Simulated scan of single mutants.
Amino acid sequence: MSDWLEVHRGEAPLIIAFPHTGTELPPELEGQFVSPWLARRDADWWIDQLYAFARELGATTVRTRISRSVIDCNRDPSGASLYPGQATTELCPTTDFDGAPLYAATPPDAAEIARRRATWFDPYHAALAGEVARLRTTHPTIVFYDAHSIRSRIPRLFEGELPQFNIGTNDGTTCAPELAAAVAAICAASGHSHILNGRFKGGWTTRHYSRPNEGVHTIQMELAIRGYMPEPDAPTPANWPTPFDPDFAAPLAATLTDILKACLAFARA
């Protein structure tokens, strides 16, 4: 694999995708951003470390190290909005989550967007599609789990404080209802807030790979960051990101372990 794309192959009927944990800014692009810190700020911080236990369960994981500010691997490559009428960011974002400009001067034009797509977006999704095909040769049913996190309060994107667990199945279309129900039940039992198909119904990845009638069930989990790392009221270069602390994250990791075990039980049933 390339130096920016990480693929760990497991044999269990479970794929976990990490489209937004990357923080790398290619040298030829880094100077175009207002600041490297701002270009990295909205990463799904430490999610790949939070889910490190998944490999012990036999899961396959696919991760890009490239920052979402360079190209967002969970957006529709056509440029169509996944959430019409709501604030969101583009395939190659021009603003951060709060609406501040990311670029010091001119944002990427159509040719540059196409170059970034060919360089990073397309190979990432080719790897995912390849793992889906590989596992489907040995498993009649697999679960594709798209792993995310986000700051708990972003007024431009949603009102108030986000629930701890945000489960997305695109209004019940991307997986069997019993899988969504099993995941929601574990979230409810955790004592933390949760919602099914709220503000985050599942991004392009969840929708694109969904083929429940053919044995591919997809589900997105958007975590509020506060559950696994201390979250300041206002991120600054001095306090963000908070270092990953396995002890702080352990309670949430335990719930996520139960969730992934439920995904495996569903697939194997």
Rank of each mutant, 00 (worst) to 15 (best):
Pro101Val: 00
His8Gln: 14
Ala147Val: 08
Glu112Thr: 14
Ile66Arg: 08
Asn239Leu: 05
Ser149Asp: 02
Ser35Met: 06
Arg117Gln: 13
Thr60Gly: 06
Leu14Gly: 02
Asp76Met: 05
Tyr228Leu: 06
Cys263Tyr: 03
Ala188Arg: 14
Asp109Val: 10
Gly58Ala: 05
Ser152Trp: 07
Asp245Gly: 03
Ala254Glu: 12
Asn170Phe: 09
Glu28Cys: 09
Ala87Pro: 09
Gly160Lys: 11
Arg9Tyr: 12
Arg55Phe: 10
Gln86Ile: 08
Gly22Trp: 09
Ala127Cys: 07
Thr88Ser: 15
Arg199Cys: 07
Asn166Thr: 06
Phe200Met: 02
Leu102Phe: 06
Pro27Thr: 15
Ala127Gly: 10
Ala180Asn: 02
Asp72Ser: 00
Ala87Tyr: 11
Pro232Ile: 05
His217Pro: 06
Gly198Ser: 06
Ile219Pro: 05
Gln220Ile: 01
Thr141Lys: 15
Thr206Trp: 03
Leu157His: 05
Cys263Asn: 04
Ala87Trp: 08
Thr137Ile: 04
Ile154Arg: 06
Trp240Val: 11
Pro230Met: 04
Tyr209Pro: 10
Leu256Ala: 05
Ala54Glu: 04
Phe248Gly: 06
Gly168Lys: 01
Thr137Ser: 14
Arg41Gln: 14
Arg207Asn: 13
Met221Ile: 13
Pro77Glu: 10
Thr88Asn: 14
Asp258Leu: 12
Cys175Phe: 00
Leu25Val: 05
Ala104Cys: 02
Pro246Gly: 10
Phe165Gln: 07
Leu29Glu: 10
Ala80Lys: 14
His217Thr: 09
Ala238Thr: 11
Gly58Arg: 10
